[in-house]
Design a protein around this nucleic acid. Structure first.
Length: 524
DNA sequence: TTGTGTTTTATTGCCTCC
DNA sequence: GGAGGCAATAAAACACAA
């Protein structure tokens, strides 16, 4: 049966022309589409044609796909709104984080609008657009991609649904995850719900794409929380402060300064995370006057990269933010830190640590799939090549796609950074789905028995045979997140001198990251 | 292996805007 | 009227449980 299905799917790909029936998009196509959709919910005609050309699809198909994708988004959001219309408190903060974009992300706005907005704004619209009810945002907005990450915890309720949703998710679930974590870790807002609480236990995937939104949200919420805190336990901010003791700014921050913020969540007094918390100064204790963006970015980036993500870790980060907010002129307590190198190393270090954890878990839980991921993730040097080859395989849809695969060769080195973050997501997705991994393993068993399962599969079709949903998740999270579709587009469109706003969240993030690092380096 | 439920794709009709 | 989008529907593909 599986064999037949495999054959069937292959037939779909190979003899797609003959069969005028409904044909599934190849993973590469779906990845590209999702990625593009992530950037542009309403692609212009030009975009569509380009996309169609590059993916070997018709414009009609592209349009239809986007249309259905939007419907899917809407539907999911509706469902989730109904299912989770209870996070009022969370919505307060979420509303706060809204950037004031009142655009209807799904309905009224025509595609042309996107030409004049920042790509990041497009993302923001997706995140904060009016279409999204507050509860959606707080709970599980954009469940599709987000499901990949947060939903992985909850296999029971999500069923196998949103397999596609779980793809990106890339792109997207991290949003939700971030949101949830953020809200939850504020110390003021209790876990949104059981699901969010669960999510907390998870190690979130680093998602540079949402750094911008998150940083704003974080700053806003921290401000709010600070304000609330002071209103509760002390004078309102900016109203009256007790005079600082002499030399208050000459000594490192004392615990009493921070503790008041946490007393709610300090339920883990001697948690191992404390070590992580104490390590934090190395990340961002250089309270330099440069914009807080970088700091918050680091904050969330490391959150994304760190494996534990327990309360104390967050608390420490929050405390850093608070310190930044409240002690702005508390400059350079810890000089020579925060260099770009530090940042990068820190991220890398976190990544490596987490990677090893992942490997551990995979080796114990994920059979072949874990191996597959291992083989891909643990060898940075092979990553590009692998992507290329695999994408090449998936790109069999059309010559155009094959051509497209070349773009992956140009992936900048910092791709690896993102990559591991996405793998984090990927891992979580796997870990959940692999709750029933035995079954999957059973499916792989036949392959295993032949040994060299991966190679075997790669050999025949150059396509890793995984149960579709799993494969989709893997590929989507892995490649879509990494796949520089933006690059591909950029090249093409820029060469045309198109005025189109190029989707650039990923590359932009990477760029932003680099620039941030550069800023850091420059500032230090 | 089969039945069932879910997801994805394709089609069609209607609406809105230019 | 044409183009684009949304919504409803059908059907295929797929995953999963029994």
């Amino acid at each position: 049966m599986e064999e037949s299905s495999e054959v069937h799917s292959e037939e779909n790909k190979v003899s797609s022309e003959k069969d005028k029936k409904r044909r599934l998009k190849t993973p590469a196509q779906v990845m590209a589409l999702e990625r593009f959709y992530n950037e542009h919910k309403y692609p212009t005609e030009e975009m569509k044609s380009q996309l169609a050309e590059q993916l070997g699809l018709t414009e009609k198909q592209i349009s239809g796909w986007f249309c259905h994708r939007r419907l899917k988004d809407k539907k999911l959001l509706r469902d989730e709104a109904c299912a989770s219309g209870r996070q009022d408190r969370s919505s307060v903060v979420i509303q706060d984080r809204g950037s004031g974009l009142g655009q209807d992300s799904c309905g009224s706005t025509k595609h042309g609008d996107y030409r004049n907005i920042d790509p990041r704004e497009v993302e923001s619209r997706r995140l904060y657009g009016n279409d999204f009810q507050v509860s959606d945002l707080t709970y599980k907005h954009m469940s599709h991609y987000t499901e990949t990450v947060s939903g992985t915890d909850d296999t029971s309720s999500e069923s196998s649904s949103s397999s596609q949703d779980k793809l990106f998710s890339q792109t997207e679930d991290p949003y939700d995850l971030e949101n949830s974590r953020y809200l939850t870790h504020n110390g003021v807002i209790a876990p949104i719900n059981a699901k969010s609480a669960k999510i907390m236990g998870y190690k979130p995937s680093g998602y540079l794409k949402v750094k911008g939104e998150i940083e704003n949200a974080a700053i806003t919420a921290v401000k709010r929380q600070l304000g609330g805190h002071y209103r509760e336990d002390g004078p309102p901010l900016g109203v009256e402060f007790q005079p600082l003791p002499p030399g208050a700014f000459e000594s490192p921050i004392q615990k009493p300064v921070r503790e008041p913020y946490y007393d709610e969540d300090l339920s883990i007094p001697n948690s191992p995370d404390i070590s992580g918390a104490e390590r934090q100064p190395s990340l961002s204790n250089g309270y330099e006057p440069y914009n807080s963006k970088l700091s918050s970015q680091d904050l969330y980036m490391e959150e994304a990269n760190s494996s534990g993500m327990h309360g104390s870790h967050y608390q420490d980060k929050i405390s850093q933010l608070k310190q930044k907010s409240t002690v702005l002129n508390h400059v350079k307590r810890f000089p020579k830190q925060n260099s770009s190198l530090d940042l990068y190393e820190d991220s890398a270090g976190e990544t490596s640590v987490y990677n090893s954890k992942r490997n551990q878990r995979m080796s114990s839980k994920h059979g072949v799939e874990g191996m597959k991921i291992d083989s891909v993730t643990n060898h940075r040097g092979h990553y590009d090549g692998k992507i290329e080859s695999e994408m090449h395989d998936y790109a069999n849809v059309s010559p155009n796609v094959i051509q497209r695969s070349e773009y992956f060769k140009f992936k900048p080195p910092n791709l690896t950074h993102n990559r591991f973050e996405s793998l984090d997501t990927e891992e979580r997705g796997l870990s959940t789905r692999m709750k029933k991994g035995e079954k999957v393993n059973r499916k792989w068993k036949g392959i295993k028995e032949h040994g060299n399962q991966v190679k075997l599969k790669m050999h025949s079709t150059n396509e890793i045979k995984v149960p579709k949903r799993v494969r989709h998740d893997l590929l989507q999270q892995d490649y879509v997140t990494k796949a520089p579709f933006t690059e591909m587009q950029t090249r093409k469109f820029l060469s045309k001198g198109s005025v189109m706003e190029m989707p650039s969240s990923f590359s932009e993030d990477e760029t932003a990251e680099n620039s941030s690092s550069q800023e850091l380096g420059a500032s230090s």
